[in-house]
C-alpha cells in the first residue's frame, strides 16, 4: 500500500506540534540568555539585541564555575560507582542463583519508589554528625543509593537479553565463571552499561532535593541548587539573564547526550518497565 502524500503531510504536521511542545521552554530560556539587560523585560520570544554578556558574566565568577565543577565531579563519580556496583549486582540477579536475591530486588524496588525528602531529615543530621555535610561524598553517597535501583533494573534487563546459553557454552568451552563473564558477557553488555551510565548521569545531574538540603556553600553546591541562589545575590542585580545563561550551559550536555544516544536512552528507559 503506497503511503499518500496527504497522510505524510498530516503526520508531518503532528510531528511539528510535538517538536514545538518539546522545545518551546528550552528555546525560550536560550532566548533569554542571549538578551541584553535592556531588552530582557520586553517579553519578545526572539531577542531583539543579541549578546553573549550573560555567558561572560557567569564564567567570570566562582558562583557558577565552582558549582559547575561540583556538578560534573559529583555526577561523574557517582555514576561510575553506581554503574560498577549495579553491574555486579545486576549480573548476579540476572544470571546466578543465590539466597537473598528476592530480598535484594525488593529492597531496591522500595528505594526506587522512596520519597527522597523523607531521607533528607535523617541524612542531614547524620551527615552533620559525621562531617559529611556540604562535602562531595555527602552528595555522592545518596546519589549512588538512589541511582542503584535504576542501574540494577536497567542492567539486569540488558543482561537478561544476553542468551543464557552463551554462558553455558563458554563454560563448556572451558571457561571459569570469571572468564565467562569478562570474555563473553561483558563485551555483549557494554552497550547496556553505557546506556545505564547515561541514565544515571542524567539522574545525578538533575537532582535538586539533596543538592539544596545537604549543601550550604560553594564547596559542594551543584548547579541546580546554585541557580536557585543566584536570585538576590549582590553580584547580579537582575539575575534573569545570568540564570538563563547558566541554565543553558548545564542543558547543553544533556541535549548532546540525547541527540547522540537517543536510541539507547529509549531502550534503557523502557527495558526495566515492561516484560518483554
Amino acid at each position: 500500500m503506497a503511503v499518500t502524500t496527504g497522510r505524510k503531510a498530516r503526520w508531518a504536521l503532528i510531528d511539528v506540534v510535538v517538536v514545538v511542545y518539546a522545545l518551546f521552554p528550552v528555546l525560550w530560556i536560550a532566548s533569554l540568555s542571549f538578551k541584553t539587560k535592556e531588552t530582557l523585560a520586553d517579553g519578545n520570544f526572539i531577542p531583539r539585541e543579541w549578546t553573549l554578556q550573560n555567558y561572560a558574566d557567569i564564567f567570570a565568577t566562582n558562583e557558577f564555575i565552582r558549582p559547575l565543577i561540583n556538578s560534573l565531579g559529583i555526577a561523574t563519580i557517582a555514576t561510575l560507582i553506581a554503574v560498577v556496583l549495579g553491574m555486579m549486582a545486576a549480573y548476579a540477579i540476572a544470571r546466578l542463583d543465590f539466597p537473598g536475591k528476592k530480598a535484594l530486588i525488593g529492597v531496591s524496588l522500595l528505594i526506587a519508589m522512596f520519597p527522597q525528602i523523607s531521607l533528607v531529615t535523617p541524612l542531614f543530621n547524620i551527615e552533620s554528625a559525621l562531617g559529611l555535610f556540604d562535602t562531595w561524598p555527602g552528595l555522592i553517597l545518596p546519589y549512588i543509593t538512589f541511582a542503584l535501583p535504576l542501574a540494577i533494573y536497567t542492567l539486569s534487563a540488558f543482561f537478561r537479553e544476553i542468551p543464557w546459553e552463551l554462558e553455558k557454552a563458554a563454560k563448556m568451552d572451558g571457561a571459569t565463571p570469571g572468564q565467562a563473564f569478562w570474555r563473553v558477557i561483558a563485551p555483549l553488555a557494554a552497550p547496556g552499561v553505557f546506556t545505564t551510565a547515561i541514565l544515571v548521569f542524567i539522574f545525578c545531574w538533575n537532582d535538586f532535593v539533596f543538592a539544596i538540603s545537604l549543601t550550604s556553600t560553594e564547596a559542594s553546591r551543584t548547579v541546580p541548587a546554585a541557580l536557585s541562589f543566584f536570585t538576590g545575590t549582590s553580584q547580579f542585580e537582575d539575575p534573569t539573564g545570568t540564570i538563563s545563561a547558566a541554565a543553558v550551559v548545564i542543558t547543553v550536555p544533556i541535549v548532546l547526550f540525547v541527540l547522540f544516544f537517543q536510541r539507547r536512552i529509549v531502550a534503557g528507559l523502557t527495558s526495566g518497565a515492561v516484560k518483554g
Partner: peptide, 10 residues
C-alpha cells in the same frame, strides 16, 4: 527526550 533530560530546575 529533551524534556526528560533537562534539569527540572532549568
Amino acid at each position: 527526550l529533551v524534556p526528560y533530560g533537562i534539569v527540572t530546575v532549568v
